[in-house]
């Protein structure tokens, strides 16, 4: 559906986007992850036709953004980082204007505006001036704008920046819902947001793609060492030694007492070795009840830091 090939954008001597290639299939929800200034917004601005690339190509549904920009723009709803709203208009006036410039047929205009308002929860705000709305509601008006014209693709640039925690949760839920009907590209520097909403992640750093895969695959690529967290009743040095002697365990670290009369341990296992049953048996044989055993998942933070620091070398 969306195809980006060797996309490059140069600003002076700096390459804001450097030879970026990716593909996004219909119906996917893809996260665009990177630090501030990594090139996320530039890539999105090129995809939506706001700026032009220095070289490379981008196409939506086979329409090239440079050769047939109007065909591409028809298919994309864009929510830039700062919602492009006119402060001196009411929500209704603004959305009517948007549906006009997006060539929504006059008959569908009203229904579409109503549906979009309903979707993002601004139906009660429709008669209010946009400048009097809170940041969260302005963001929603921006969202409604992107939905007008029923575009197949939604491109959302940092849609939750500057919102309060409750609004963030609501907006994420909204994006999840929208992902059922649209192809969504979402940029973010917030890792758990991407983990929460997206099926696939493209990680970009210093203008280059450093990884693109599903979250599970990315996690397993980094996850060569499995880690377990244990809590053992009456744990002491003998427990640590017994655990250390188990086959498949590389390292045991005592984490201290988090609950009276217990001891916490961090166990690092060798790759692909499942030692959980063995741990249970050895502790049982020592009469040391195992109160808690939890795998320490590799977080998106770990993946991100590992990938972006590799790139820096």
């Amino acid at each position: 559906m969306i195809k980006v090939e060797n996309l490059t954008k140069r600003y002076g001597s700096k390459l804001a986007v450097n030879d970026v290639t990716f593909q996004i299939n219909e119906g996917e929800v893809v996260g665009f992850l990177g630090r501030n200034g990594a090139g996320k917004t530039t890539t999105m601005n090129i995809l939506t036709g706001y700026i032009s690339s220095t070289s490379g190509s981008a196409s939506v549904n086979g329409f090239d953004i440079l050769k047939e920009p109007l065909e591409v723009k028809k298919r994309i709803g864009y929510l830039p980082e700062q919602p492009p709203v006119y402060m001196d208009m009411t929500v209704n006036e603004y959305l009517t204007f948007v549906s006009n410039i997006k060539n929504v047929p006059a008959k569908q205009r009203k229904a579409q505006i109503e549906a979009a308002c309903e979707r993002v929860g601004i139906t009660e705000m429709r008669k209010r001036l946009i400048k009097n709305l809170s940041k969260g509601y302005k963001q929603r008006v921006g969202f409604a704008q992107a939905l007008i014209g029923n575009p197949e693709v939604l491109i959302l640039d940092e849609p939750t920046v500057g919102l309060d925690p409750r609004q963030i949760i609501e907006i994420r839920q909204l994006i999840k819902d929208l992902g059922k009907q649209h192809t969504v590209i979402l940029s973010s520097h917030i890792l758990h947001e991407v983990a929460d909403v997206c099926e696939r992640v493209i990680i970009i750093d210093q203008g280059k793609i450093v990884a693109q895969d599903t979250l599970a695959n990315l996690a397993s690529s980094v996850n060569e060492i499995a880690r377990l967290s244990l809590r053992v009743q009456g744990g002491d040095a003998s427990v640590r030694k017994a655990l250390h002697d188990l086959h498949g365990i590389k390292y045991v670290e005592a984490l201290g007492v988090k609950e009276p009369d217990t001891q916490d341990y961090l166990v690092e296992c060798e790759a692909h070795a499942d030692v959980r049953a063995d741990i249970f048996r050895v502790l049982a044989s020592m009469n040391r009840p195992l109160l808690l055993m939890r795998p320490m998942d590799v977080t998106l933070e770990d993946i991100f830091l590992q990938l972006t620091s590799e790139e820096a070398h």
Binding site: G49, I76, P80, P84, I101, G149
Partner: peptide, 14 residues
């Protein structure tokens, strides 16, 4: 200044 040009330039109008 208000970045509303992003709306105009990414909409299907010339």
């Amino acid at each position: 200044r208000t970045k509303t040009d992003q709306l105009l330039l990414t909409s299907p109008i010339s």
